[in-house]
Design a protein around this nucleic acid. Structure first.
Lengths: 334, 334
DNA sequence: CTGAAAGCGCTTACAG
DNA sequence: CTGAAAGCGCTTACAG
């Protein structure tokens, strides 16, 4: 039930070359021949072998997407899920297939695998080891980074303006009258957690908020459980020292912390306000819904594909850094 | 910077055949030759071309995964995200790359695309049109269905025991003393929503719950917003007629409905209990956390790969239907 | 407009 | 243990 072009050609009474021309749609063929071949193709449900095509074209029309992340969930993480959805959609429109891989070891191995598959380009997501970039470079395959961090000015990367987002969050909360800030700060080796915290703190400084009125609790992870655990641990401090607001460097931490607060009958936002960062779907779904800083993941995903496509086909010069504005989304928690 | 085996062979001073043998690891080669080739490979960072390999092996070592779903979110849907995570992991362990595609039109096209890529096997997820199956069959490529519905006894498919799960949910709620049941039932053309509702109702019948004490509201969608909208619309009925419990055919609907209840200061579970189905991550994260029926998506994903692998390599006879027990997870909402 | 030939980068019998 | 040859399924100049 699987035919090749030779058989199609034979049945249509033409040469492989001619069959190829009509099937691939490039090159001349008389209308009669064209029709004859197409009939056979239809009848036999012939599907050209993309592997063979890739072989001669030296192009697979596929891109590799790797998410580097230590912890499960990976794809099922709300943020990355959104990104993948958007990448898939954009890739489809441009005729790319996508190989998806997650890499918990943040190793070179998954990248190597993609390289062997001869993907036309690579989208590297999240924090990856420096040596991964070094490695990819050696093979000069087009690639770009989304939401990662690098000090290498040559790397095309898409990031959100986390520092500004953090600053805006601080300004917004300050404008609401808050003067004592409790902060849950995710892993500082992550670019975004780091910049969000920095931006937030700097803005508070600018606003002359006393250092002693800012309490930062470092989080080793950045998930719901961590938010929950940490808030449970520090709740007495939070209440005892009368902090009026909690800011976290992502939504998951905020949601986890909020759950503790709700369980302890703290009224949000009356007794304490909460603000996160990312705007994952569940920020809106939670009750009370979470005020946050929105990162436009959908757009970043789409742009990643568009840019990679440009890198692949025209290889023209383009800027290396793409920054996405973040927007404050005000909801019930503040 | 991209070499082929011919160049490696040349530099190592051996024939392509020999180089191939050491690189692929099959076939004889003297230790000295082996080392010489490996050195060159290492030095040049040679990576064999998987496309060419696939060509001769007539095997790509890749599988295609397609999620059929009308609405966004697709990958970012908590349930499917989990499934993908698990599939990715299992595929990696078995040396498969995975092509991922989402298909909003539930069409044949995405499948065709995978077929052209000559994937070794196909995992079809969620509800798909009947003609997709017909189509795939023609190409006799190994495939299986996860969480879909089919009356075709030949199709290997993995499903959860939704009917039993529904029945158990009913029995559990009844045992808590509930006698008036309000139900939000997702699209009945979906196998799982349908069976969950059926199982639930049948159990109530068995328990002699009066028909008039069961109120079923049909939902056109199965997402958070739909749960919210529907509950908002029917809240007066719910309260007015003193239903003591809400059961929904999935967690998203439950969470949406719960939000309405919380906003109307209904105390959960004191005034009204809520129970969902799926056990997505946010069921546990919500406040109050949601009692639900757990579907072991992680296991289904893993098994899907294992079974597909068997289908691909040994093609041995195997059962067609794999059912997964569902387990009640009791949390704060009941 | 059409066909024979070469080639994409590998692997795999087959001889030696 | 090693190498020459054929072949996987296509496409692409090149002649005609």
């Amino acid at each position: 039930m699987k035919y090749n072009i030779k058989e199609i050609a034979l049945l249509a009474g033409v040469s492989k070359s001619t069959a190829s021309r009509v099937i691939s749609g490039k090159g001349y063929a008389s209308p009669e021949v064209r029709q004859r071949v197409n009939e056979i193709v239809e009848q036999l449900q012939y599907r050209p072998n993309a592997v063979a095509r890739a072989m001669v074209a030296k192009r697979t029309n596929s891109i590799g997407v790797i998410i580097f992340r230590e912890k499960q969930p990976i794809v099922s993480h709300p943020l990355y899920g959104k990104l993948i959805d958007s990448i898939l959609m954009a890739a489809q429109q441009r005729g790319y297939s996508v190989f998806l891989k997650t890499d918990q070891e943040m190793s070179i191995q998954s990248t190597d695998y993609m390289l062997e598959q001869r993907v036309d380009g690579l989208i590297l997501i999240s924090r990856l080891q420096k040596n991964v970039i070094e490695h990819v470079k050696k093979f000069n395959v087009p690639y770009l980074m989304v939401n990662g961090s690098t000090d290498d000015p040559e790397v095309v990367h898409l990031v959100s303006k986390d520092e500004i987002g953090g600053a805006r969050a601080a300004a917004y909360l300050h404008s609401l009258g808050h003067r004592k800030f409790f902060i849950l700060a995710g892993p500082q080796e992550h670019r975004s957690h780091n910049l969000r915290l920095q931006g937030f703190r700097e803005e508070l400084r600018r606003l002359n908020v006393e250092e002693s009125h800012i309490h930062v609790v470092p989080a080793m992870e950045s998930d719901f459980d961590q938010g929950y655990t940490l808030m449970a641990k520090h709740l007495s401090t939070f209440i005892g020292e009368a902090y009026s607001v909690l800011f976290t460097t992502n939504d998951m931490l905020a949601l986890g912390a909020m759950k503790v607060m709700l369980q302890n009958a703290i009224r949000i936002p009356e007794q304490a306000a909460v603000m996160g960062f990312d705007d994952i779907d569940f920020a809106a779904a939670y009750s009370p819904s979470l005020t946050t800083v929105k990162v436009d993941t959908t757009r970043m995903g789409r742009d990643a594909v568009v840019l990679l496509d440009r890198l692949i086909s025209r290889n023209q010069d383009m800027s290396k850094l793409y920054e996405y504005a973040s927007e404050i989304i005000i909801r019930q928690s503040t």
